[in-house]
Design a binder for these strands. Structure first.
Length: 812
RNA sequence: GCGAGGAUGGCGGAAUUGGCAGACGCGCUGGAUUUAGGAUCCAGUUCCAUCACGGAAUGGGGGUUCAAGUCCCCCUCCUCGCACCA
C-alpha cells in the first residue's frame, strides 16, 4: 500500500497546533532568533514563496532539536504598492482584498507545516502595527533624520507616485516596469546619508553575510574620497563648490559645467543675453529621461559667465550641460578634457582648449592627435609648483594646498541618496504630520497615534496626488500646538518603512505601550539567522533595516546596531526557465499541490532540487523522486517495526561494523549539512541510508538502530511523516521536542582504507588496507600488484610519491 | 563600461587542504512481479572502444605539478548587481 500523506499531515498539524509545539519560550535560556522575510500578500501563496518558508523551517526545526529556544515568527508586509495594485486590479477595497489574501495564505501556509509561532503573527496594515510605524517616523523627525524638501524626484506614471532611488532599476519602476520621469516635488525624506559611513563600516563586521551581498551594498553606498574646491564667477558675486576626485588635474581645467537642475543656475544667468537659450536647454533636458540623456552626445549651452580657477586665476567659460548630475557631488563639475572622457568629448564638440597636465609613465600625449582622454594616474606636468609629482601624492598635495588657502578641502562623497518616503497613494501608513497656518509643520504627538487611515473611501485610484487629500474628515484637523485649523499631510509612507522594523515587533507583538519592550529586545536581538531573497532586497530593505537598527540603537531602544548575524540569500524558484510568478502564468499553487501530493513532498522537492542559494527549477521529475522516497521511508519503518532498536547498540559484531559506521557517518553528514544550509546533500545522504537499509538482509540491532536514526534525520525535512513514523515505533508526542540524534565518534572512520595506485598519475589499481600501514609496506604491496607489474614492465621507476592512506603514484 | 557569480553525463546536481570526477535523484536499458497499465523490487547506465587490453572527458586554449573540476595566465558564453558618480 502506498503512503497517503493527506490524513497523516492533517493529523500532525492539528496535534502541533493543539499542543502548542511551536509556541515561543517567553524566557529563553538559549535563544535563537530565526527569521524569514515577511511577505507581500498578493493572492494565495505559490511554491515560489514556499521555498523561503521551507528553508527557514528546516533550519528552525534543526535548531529546536539542538536545544535552542527558537523564535520563528511570520507576518505580512501588507501595505504598499503590491497589495494596493492587486486590489485595484480586482476592483475591491485594498483592506478587503489584503485581509482576505492574508487569511487564505495563512491557511495554505499552515498546510505546509511550517513551525511558526502563529501567536506572534504581525500584519503591517493594522493600526496596532502602523501606529508604531508612525512612531518611528516621529522618532526620526525628532532626531533630525526626517525632513521635507523640494527635489527632482523619480515619478512613476504607472503607479502615479514618487519612488525612492532604490525602487528604480534601469530607470524603470520596480513594481510596474514603467519608465520613470523626474518631477520637482515637495517630499519627505529620511536622512540615511547621515549614516552612510556607519552603514559602510558596519559591513566589515558582518562575517555571517555573503561577501557578494556586502559588495553590492558597498557599491550602492558608493564612497569616494576627493576634494571640494570653491570657484568664483568672474562677472557676478557668486561662488560655488565643486567636488572632484582628481584635484591633481586642476591645472587642466578649461571649462566648467553645471547641471540644468542646479538651484543656482537661475542667479547665474539672470540678465545675461544667454538666458533664453539656457532656459530652453534646461527645460528640454529636464523632459528627457535619464537614459535619453545618457545615450545622446554630450552637449551644453554657454551661460555667458566665466569662472575663475583659483589655482592660476584663469578665466574659463561656464556651460550648462545635462551630463552633469544635480544629485551627485555639488552639481557642478570642472571640465578637464585631457583627463576625463566626457569632458574630452564636450571639449572637442565646442572646440575648447585641451590642456595635458598628467603624463603617462612611459609615453607622451600629443594633444592634436589624441582620440580619447588619458584617465589613468601619471605624473603632473604644466602644474606650477606641483609639476613632477605623481598623481597619488599630487592629489594629497593639491588638496592640502586648497585647504590652506581656504578654497575648500578634503571631502568624502557618497552616492547613496536620502530615502524618499512619501507616496501619493492610499494604501499605506499616513505620515503623522500636520500643517498649521500659524505654526507651520507640526508633528502629531505620540499619544495621538495612530493617525488612522480612513476606511470609508471609495475612490482610492491613484491620480498623481494622494487620494487622502480629498477625504475632508481626514485631511482637516486641528493643530496639536495651537489648536487652530490645520491640514494633515495627505501622503502615506513607503512600504519599506513598515518593513524596516517589523523584526522588532515580533519580539513583543501585543505590546500597546511600546513598539517592543527593552527587556524583550535585549532578550532576543540580534537576529541569529535571516533568510530570504537576494536581488530585490540587497540595495533596498537590507540597507533600510540596517539604517533603522542604527537609529534605534542610537536612541537607546535596542542593544545592537546591526540587526542580523547570519544572512542567507536564497535563489529563486523557477518554472520553465522563468521566475515563478502570477504575471508569467507559471506558478504552482501551494494549496492544490499539497492537497494532491502532500506538504512533505513539496518540501522535499524544493529542498532536493539544488543548493538553496542557487536558482532552482521546479519539475515534475523532482516530485516523482520525492514521492518515491517518502513512500519507501514509510515502508521501511512500517514493514520492519519490530526490528527497530531505539538505543545505540553496545556491542557491534564485526560483520555489522561497516553498516554501523555508515549510519554514524550519515548522521554526521546530515548534521553538518543542516548547519551549513546544504539541504540538498543532506537529503542525498538520507537516500543513501535508505538504500543501505533496504539492501540489508540481517535485521539486527544495528539495522534497527539505522531505522531509528533515519526517522530522526528525516524530521526537519519531512516533519509530518517523521512524526507519524515516530508514533508508529511507539514513541510519544512530536519529534520536534526530542533532542537531535548524536553520532558515535568512535565509528566515523572506515576500518579499511583504499589506497589508490597510480602510474604517472593514472589510476591502475587499488589496495585495500586494514589498520595502520607504513610506506614501505605499501610500496612492496603495490609493486607486487599484477596490474601494476603489467604497467611497469620494461620501464624504469623514477620516483614514487606516497600520500599516507590515500595514494601511491609511481612515476616511470 | 565597472563589479560579482557561474559553465561538470540525456537532465537536476556531488566532489575538505590539489589526490579514484560524476555521490544522490530523475530519465533510460534489462530482469522479476503483475491480466494489462501503473506501482514495487533487483541489476546496469559519462563517452569511445571487437565491451578484452585500453583511450578520451569537468566551456575553449596555454601553464605550474608526481597529480588539476580545484592553483596561475589568456579567451568564449551565460546570469545578476551598478551604471554619465566628476
Amino acid at each position: 500500500m502506498k503512503y497517503q500523506p493527506s490524513k497523516v499531515e492533517n493529523k500532525w498539524q492539528k496535534y502541533w497546533h493543539e499542543k502548542r509545539i511551536f509556541a515561543t519560550n517567553p524566557k529563553p535560556k538559549k535563544k535563537f532568533y530565526n527569521l524569514v522575510m515577511f511577505a507581500y500578500p498578493s493572492g494565495d501563496i505559490h511554491l515560489g514563496h514556499c521555498k523561503n518558508y521551507v528553508i527557514g523551517d528546516v533550519y528552525a526545526r534543526f535548531k529546536m532539536r539542538c536545544g535552542y529556544d527558537v523564535l520563528h515568527p511570520f507576518g505580512w508586509d501588507a501595505f504598499g504598492l503590491p497589495a494596493e495594485n492587486r486590489a485595484i486590479q480586482l476592483g475591491v477595497h485594498p483592506e478587503k482584498s489584503t485581509m482576505e489574501n492574508i487569511r487564505t495564505s495563512d491557511e495554505s501556509l499552515k498546510l505546509l507545516g511550517i513551525s511558526y509561532d502563529w501567536d506572534r503573527e504581525v500584519i503591517s496594515c493594522l493600526p496596532d502595527y502602523y501606529k508604531w510605524t508612525q512612531w518611528m517616523f516621529l522618532l526620526l523627525y525628532k532626531r533630525g533624520l526626517a525632513y521635507k524638501k523640494q527635489a527632482h524626484v523619480n515619478w512613476c506614471p504607472g503607479c502615479q507616485t514618487v519612488l525612492a532611488n532604490e525602487q528604480v532599476t534601469e530607470e524603470k519602476c520596480y513594481r510596474c516596469n514603467t519608465p520613470v520621469e523626474k518631477r520637482k516635488l515637495d517630499q519627505w525624506f529620511f536622512k540615511i546619508t547621515e549614516y552612510a559611513e556607519r552603514l559602510l563600516d558596519g559591513l566589515d563586521q558582518l562575517d555571517g553575510w555573503q561577501e557578494n551581498m556586502k559588495i553590492i551594498q558597498r557599491n550602492w553606498i558608493g564612497r569616494s574620497e576627493g576634494c571640494d574646491i570653491v570657484f568664483k564667477i568672474a562677472e557676478k558675486d557668486i561662488e560655488f563648490k565643486v567636488f572632484t576626485t582628481r584635484p591633481d588635474t586642476i591645472f587642466g581645467v578649461t571649462f566648467m559645467s553645471i547641471a540644468p537642475e542646479h538651484p543656482m543656475l537661475e542667479n547665474i544667468i539672470k540678465g545675461s543675453p544667454y538666458e533664453t537659450a539656457v532656459h530652453q536647454y534646461a527645460s528640454e533636458a529636464t523632459k528627457k529621461t535619464e537614459i535619453e540623456r545618457m545615450e545622446k552626445e554630450k552637449d551644453g549651452v554657454f551661460t555667458g559667465c566665466h569662472v575663475v580657477n583659483p589655482i592660476n586665476n584663469e578665466k574659463i567659460p561656464l556651460f550648462v550641460a545635462d551630463y552633469v548630475l544635480s544629485e551627485y557631488g555639488s552639481g557642478v563639475v570642472m571640465g578637464v578634457p585631457a583627463h576625463d572622457e566626457r569632458d574630452f568629448q564636450f571639449a572637442r564638440k565646442y572646440d575648447l582648449p585641451i590642456k595635458v597636465v598628467i603624463e603617462p609613465p612611459d609615453s607622451k600625449i600629443d594633444v592634436t592627435s589624441m582620440t580619447s582622454a588619458y584617465e589613468e594616474p601619471g605624473t603632473m606636468v604644466n602644474s606650477g609648483k606641483f609639476t613632477g609629482m605623481k598623481s597619488e601624492s599630487g592629489i594629497k598635495a593639491v588638496t592640502t594646498f586648497v585647504a590652506e588657502q581656504g578654497w575648500g578641502g578634503p571631502r568624502i562623497n557618497y552616492r547613496l541618496k536620502d530615502w524618499l518616503i512619501s507616496r501619493q497613494r492610499y494604501w499605506g501608513a499616513p505620515i503623522p504630520i500636520v500643517y498649521c497656518e500659524k505654526c507651520g509643520t507640526v508633528p502629531v504627538s505620540d499619544d495621538n497615534l495612530p493617525v488612522l487611515l480612513p476606511k470609508d473611501i471609495t475612490d482610492f485610484i491613484p491620480r498623481g496626488t494622494s487620494p487622502l487629500g480629498g477625504v475632508a474628515s481626514f485631511i482637516n484637523t486641528t493643530c496639536p500646538k495651537c489648536g487652530g485649523k490645520a491640514r494633515r499631510d495627505p501622503d502615506t509612507m513607503d512600504t519599506f518603512v513598515c518593513s524596516s522594523w517589523y523584526f522588532l515587533r515580533y519580539l513583543d507583538p501585543k505590546n500597546g505601550r511600546e513598539f517592543c519592550s527593552k527587556k524583550n529586545a535585549d532578550m532576543w536581538l540580534p537576529i541569529d539567522q535571516y533568510t530570504g531573497g537576494t536581488s530585490e532586497h540587497a540595495t533596498g530593505h537590507l540597507i533600510y533595516f540596517r539604517f533603522f537598527t542604527k537609529v534605534l540603537y542610537d536612541a537607546g531602544y535596542i542593544p545592537v546596531d546591526e540587526p542580523v548575524i547570519n544572512l542567507f540569500n536564497l535563489g529563486m524558484l523557477m518554472k520553465n526557465g522563468e521566475k515563478m510568478s502570477s504575471s508569467r502564468g507559471n506558478l504552482v499553487a501551494a494549496r492544490q499541490f499539497i492537497e494532491k501530493h502532500g506538504a512533505d513532498v513539496a518540501r522535499l522537492t524544493i529542498l532536493f532540487a539544488a543548493p538553496p542559494e542557487r536558482e532552482s527549477e521546479w519539475t515534475n521529475e523532482g516530485v516523482v523522486g520525492s514521492e518515491r522516497f517518502l513512500n519507501r521511508a514509510y515502508h521501511l519503518v512500517v514493514d520492519n517495526k519490530t526490528s527497530v532498536s531505539k538505543n545505540k547498540p553496545t556491542k557491534i559484531p564485526p560483520d555489522e561494523e561497516r553498516l554501523f559506521i555508515k549510519i554514524n557517518q550519515i548522521i554526521a553528514k546530515v548534521t553538518d549539512d543542516l548547519e551549513t544550509f546544504k539541504f540538498n546533500t543532506a537529503i542525498a545522504a538520507l537516500w543513501e541510508l535508505q538504500n543501505e537499509l533496504y539492501a540489508c538482509n540481517n535485521k539486527s540491532a544495528v539495522y534497527g538502530y539505522g531505522i531509528y536514526a533515519f526517522i530522526h534525520l528525516l524530521s526537519p525535512f519531512a516533519p509530518h511523516l517523521a512524526d507519524e513514523l515516530w508514533s508508529l515505533i511507539d514513541e510519544k508526542g512530536s519529534l520536534s521536542k526530542q533532542k537531535w540524534i548524536e553520532y558515535d565518534k568512535a565509528y566515523l572512520k572506515d576500518r579499511t582504507t583504499t589506497i589508490v595506485l597510480q602510474i604517472n598519475g593514472r589510476v591502475r589499481s587499488h589496495l585495500e588496507i586494514e589498520g595502520e600501514i607504513n610506506e614501505k609496506k605499501v610500496k612492496d604491496l603495490a609493486l607486487q600488484d599484477a596490474r601494476i607489474q603489467h604497467h611497469i614492465k620494461n620501464k624504469e621507476i623514477k620516483k614514487i610519491i606516497y600520500v599516507p592512506n590515500k595514494i601511491l603514484n609511481i612515476v616511470v
